[in-house]
């Protein structure tokens, strides 16, 4: 294809978009609404993910020291904890401080503690673990290991909560992937059919262009550009509509996240490529040779 032809195909694409405004508008609206479902689904996913991440971030392992372990042993344990893989931060919690915060937690029932003789709580380390290490099997292994150290009484990490949480998250990911795939396939299907209808409605133009000696590339490029433009505009429409949905939902659920700039750019790019590809696919049958 020479430079002149290259110019003509883009001219042709612009002419097609201009002269078939209504048909293009209908396609874009159909595609935009289908994509809206996908965007809303993505929003639900990222928001649930954010909740899961936050829960994980607050998760700590508590290593309780044996009574009278001594300062040297405590320092030694702290160093060893810091040397464990996945450990991000180790904070010493003196027993007095622990009692104080326990008292705060109990609030007005805190007078119960007055019945105790002295402080029953041990000194402890509060260990922050990297998110990728927050798995029950890893934490259990760590706890078992640490419990074997001298001067350590016990290591706890909220195992019952973690196991239940993990099951929930796993279930969510599975359902999310499954539903996501179905939605993606349906959206691709709707877009492919919409573009196919556009292509079929121009079958005559394609035939004529081939008759007068247009190469396949010459015939394809305007449709490719048209499909890409439709995809991009439909993606923009879907993002705009989902922003409205998000704004309404946020009134009831403050702190609800929206797609970031990068994600929006990636989504629009994805839809642009999708539009171009389904457009090419739809034409394959019409361009036999």
């Amino acid at each position: 294809m020479n430079a002149a032809q290259f110019g003509y195909v883009f001219d042709e694409a612009a002419t097609m978009l201009r002269r078939h405004k209504a048909a293009n508008a209908v396609s874009i609206v159909i595609m935009g609404l289908s994509l809206l479902i996908l965007v809303v689904f993505l929003l639900v996913t990222i928001n649930v993910q954010a909740v899961i991440d936050r829960a994980g971030d607050e998760m700590r392992v508590y290593v309780y020291l044996a009574d009278g372990a001594g300062e040297a042993a405590a320092r030694d344990i702290q160093m060893r904890l810091l040397g464990l893989p996945g450990v991000e931060e180790v904070v010493f919690v003196p027993r007095d401080e622990a009692l104080l915060s326990f008292r705060e937690t109990l609030g007005k029932n805190s007078d119960m503690l007055d019945a105790l003789e002295g402080n029953p709580l041990p000194d402890a380390f509060r260990v922050k673990v990297k998110p990728e290490y927050i798995r029950s099997e890893r934490l259990e292994e760590m706890a078992r290991n640490v419990e074997g150290w001298s001067g350590v009484e016990e290591a706890r990490y909220g195992e019952r909560w973690l196991e239940r949480g993990e099951k929930l998250v796993k279930g969510f990911y599975f359902a999310d992937l499954f539903v996501g795939l179905i939605i993606l396939l349906s959206v691709v299907f709707v877009i492919a059919n919409t573009v196919r209808l556009t292509v079929i409605s121009r079958q005559r133009s394609i035939e004529v262009a081939r008759l007068v000696g247009a190469t396949n590339a010459y015939v394809r490029i305007p449709f490719l550009v048209e499909g890409a433009v439709q995809g991009a505009v439909a993606a923009g429409l879907a993002v705009a509509l989902s922003a409205i949905v998000h704004a309404v939902a946020r009134r009831h659920l403050p702190g609800l996240l929206f797609l970031g700039g990068d994600a929006i750019a990636a989504f629009v790019f994805f839809c642009t490529i999708l539009g171009a590809i389904v457009s090419l696919g739809a034409m394959r049958r019409l361009l036999r040779f």
Binding site: Q5, Y8, H20, V208, V212
Partner: peptide
């Protein structure tokens, strides 16, 4: 087999453009 959305000029030009 003319293209209905193109003028007479454009229909003839199509062959040359191709």
């Amino acid at each position: 087999r003319l293209l209905g959305d193109k003028t007479v000029f454009e229909n003839v030009a199509l062959a040359l453009k191709a």
